[in-house]
Every structure is written in structure tokens, then in C-alpha cells.
Write a protein that binds this DNA or RNA. Sequence first.
DNA 1: CGGGCCACCTGGCGGC
DNA 2: TGCCGCCAGGTGGCCC
Length: 278
Amino acid sequence: MPELPEVQTTVNGLQSLLGKEITNIKLYTTKLRYLIPKNIIKIAKNNKILKIYRIGKYIILKLSNSYSLVFHFGMSGRLRISKIDNYRLVKHDHILLFIKNRKILSFNDPRKFGFIDFAISKEIYKKKYIIKLGLDPFDIQLTYHYLFKKISNSKVPIKQILLDQRIITGIGNIYASEILYDAKISPFTPGFHLNNDKLKNLIKSIRKILKKAINFGGTSIRNYVAIDGTLGNFQNKFKVYNKEKQKILGFKIKRVVQYGRSTFYCPSIQKKFTIRNN
DNA sequence: CGGGCCACCTGGCGGC
DNA sequence: TGCCGCCAGGTGGCCC
């Protein structure tokens, strides 16, 4: 489910747990994408949540001991806060964190591609799934120089490059299509074909689309809902995603499959070739 | 190493 | 109604 905007929306919603104590953890599953570390209970129990933030698509809860909890949502994971009295275990609730203010933070994930882990807070950047991440889209170090260095020798189509978390972290399959439409770049354009102007433009579109999606509370199709169960609204702002055969500005939208994932684009607006001129 | 492909898992939907 | 095939906000591991 979640790309950066959904993860950020979740992180925003979680802030009400700041300073609150985790009184217990209950596991209803032993394995999600990975085995759930058993000692996660010992590590979190009776500790306060001091900081809640994200790295790429990973959600981090920094605890009052030296540890942090790490959540990843995979394709269908989500976190939800309920009052203890209202809470009913629903299908695919795998992990419950009991919070001292009589709330429950539940992790639900039908497809089990998500995971939960812990890390020593100071060493979180050494985690194998964190260390390889590229720049955050909102990091000021993300410039056309950076992108040019990373992709100017690559034959890989830009759609796939946007999904490569080692280059930029946070973009997923929905926003990749929406970003490329906004930037008027064909999804097939190989990395080496993009000149500095196009890259500047692309970075602008990345930030614009992601910001807009965050402002709309993310995208709610299938599983994703916010921390309190409310829906995101960005799906109503899609220009191309899920709009095969519909028209935009009078032009047909197409769906193709690249690397096994759907790409939606408008061939008339996202022209196929760009000449390198730097 | 980079890049391409597949597996992991469950459920919803459309077609027959 | 039932079954089948296809599709789904991700990513790690296996190949070459």
C-alpha cells in the first residue's frame, strides 16, 4: 500500500502517542515478511515513545531505552490507533501495542509483506534495509547533479529508476506514474537520455506530487486508511494511475507493464524521446 | 556490481 | 454460485 505520502500521513497521525508508554505487546503471528523477533516484547515493554518519524517508507518509533521499533508496510500493511474499550481483533491484525492511555496501536497486514523489527537507535542506519536507501525526495541534497551522477550511464527506463529505493527512497508504483505525467516524461526514457533540464523538472514534479498527496492524506484504494481509520483522498487527484482508456486533455491514457508492474501514462503528452544536450 | 525476473501472501474482481 | 485467472501503494534473493 504505502508509498511515502501514506507513510508520512501515518507518522503524522501517530504523533498523539509521543511520550506515552508501551505497557505490553501481543503477537498473533510469528512471521510476516520476516520472523518477528521474539524479544521485541521485552525490548519495548514499559518504555516510552520519544520520537516517531520515517526513513523512506520505514516508520521508526524511538523508545526511551536505547532501542527503536521499525515498521514496514509492504503492500498492504497499516497501523491503527483504537481505544482499548472499542478494540476488536480483526482479521490480519498481527501485532498489538498496548499504550498506557488506554489505546491500542494495531498492525494489520493481509498480505504479510510488511514487517516489524527493532534496532539500537544509534545504529539504525546500519540496518541492512536502511543502509542502502538513497536520498529522501525532500532532502536538499537531491539535486539534478545527484541524479545525473546516479543515472546518466543507465539504460534502465526512468519509471523503474523512480522505483529504485537505492537512488531515491519513498516513491512507489502509483506516484511514479503520476510524477512522470506531471514532468511530461515518457516512462520508457532511459536514464542516460535525461538531460539536466529534464532532471530538474523531474525533481520538481517528485516534490510537487508527493507534497500534494501528503496534503490530501495519501491514497486510499484497497487497504490504506489513516491511523484513525479515515480515508486519504489523493486517489481523486490521479491524472493517469488506474485510468487506462480514459482521456486527459483529450488524449488517451495507456497502461503498459514494465518489470512486472503497471505503468499508466499519456503517450501524447509524455513523448518518447528526449535529446541529451549537456 | 547492476539489472531482470520471480517469489512471498491474501483477497477482490471480472469473465465464463 | 463457483472456479479461474489476473491484478494489487514492496522488496529481497536468485540468476546472468
